[in-house]
Design a binder for these strands. Structure first.
Lengths: 206, 206
DNA sequence: GTCTATAGGGCGATAGAC
DNA sequence: GTCTATCGCCCTATAGAC
């Protein structure tokens, strides 16, 4: 039985890279730091991933698959049902991102994401559109069902502004920061609550 | 008369740096590119600014002084008046940022700003708080006057979420992008209009 | 198939000549 | 005030060991 393969070099690189990238940024963390932290040789990154940017893309794919999978799961539980309210759909969109930000491994990914948004890279835009566009389309459809009086353009704008508020809240940069005497879990609930109230009113604007 | 000094090396560096940083990011643009574009020697940056990061800080100070100066001017015209409505205060906060993003020189600064937000650097946070905290406090006071039923914590949260929506809209990353047949100026008006409606409702949430 | 050692070229910073 | 030369660190690519 060829059980227990020695140690997965590739995954040790991934784990070390995600932590260091979130901490110091894509350019701030060097492959030398990453490979040293993972306890592997510098060139192992090129062997397993091809280049630094392909390593970054792999991290994105991993986390975004997770977030968007959870979003779709939550959406499918409520989509089309007569008792569903706007807040339910917002929660299905917002909660997976907030929750991931509170789980050990993924705790720092949303900061990576916020950083990447600001990079304004067309490659990333295409990547997101190609891989997760279908998720967005399903949310747009459900938002449209619950806000029938809203034109398509207004709807897109408001979902976009909601995403901005979410990303900003996740990036942890704003004035509001978790006070040291408040547990992490409670702070995340507060984020979801505040986002729900603010964006629900924003989306409903007549 | 010692008029017309040769050529201001320092300012040529500043102009070239702002353009290249906005285009390729702080790490993406090298001092070698900046100095080549400005037509000055590489070492001139270190002589005039001390380091790359101090050059970046100088650019921030310049643009933020501009934006916050305009914000205060707009706020002082309406603060405390009985006929002032919430939308006026939001506009005083939002419009200077949107307008600057449409002026030749500053056209790309808000992207630089969005990027910096995502960097999540405590140095930047302290810099903003020390230099522009008084502007924020005056806006908080006026928002508080018009939303008296809102607790202080809720008020801070919502202003923060508004800033997130603004920053995201400015970064130009979202789904909504200017269509090529719509003039830049008209697109900026649309941004202000959508932001006003969305955030006014969000702030007013009962 | 997996990994190591190493070389090439770009980067920011600085010392010291002018 | 400006420039050249140079140092140490970075990412990438690749030849070859295991």
């Amino acid at each position: 039985m060829d059980s227990t393969p020695p140690i997965p070099t590739k995954q040790r690189i991934l784990a070390a890279a995600e932590e260091l990238f979130a901490q110091h940024g894509f350019d701030g963390a060097s492959l030398r730091q990453v490979t040293a932290s993972a306890g592997v040789n510098l060139a192992a990154v090129n062997y397993h991933f091809g280049s630094k940017s392909q390593l970054i893309e792999e991290i994105f794919r991993h986390r975004l698959d997770d977030i968007n999978g959870r979003r779709l799961l939550a959406l499918h539980k409520i989509a089309g049902k007569p008792e569903t309210v706007l807040e339910d759909v917002i929660a299905a969109y917002v909660r997976p991102a907030v929750e991931l930000s509170g789980e050990g491994e993924g705790s720092v990914f949303m900061r990576v994401m916020a950083r990447a948004y600001a990079e304004h890279d067309d490659t990333l835009r295409r990547f997101l559109s190609e891989n997760y566009g279908h998720v967005m389309r399903q949310f747009v459809a459900e938002f449209g069902r619950l806000l029938p009086e809203l034109g398509k353009e207004d709807l897109y704008w408001r979902i976009d502004l909601m995403t901005g508020a979410l990303t900003h809240a996740m990036s942890g940069f704003g004035m509001i920061q978790r006070k040291s005497d408040i547990p992490e879990r409670q702070h995340r609930e507060k984020i979801v609550e505040q986002l729900l109230r603010f964006t629900a009113s924003g989306l409903r604007h007549p």
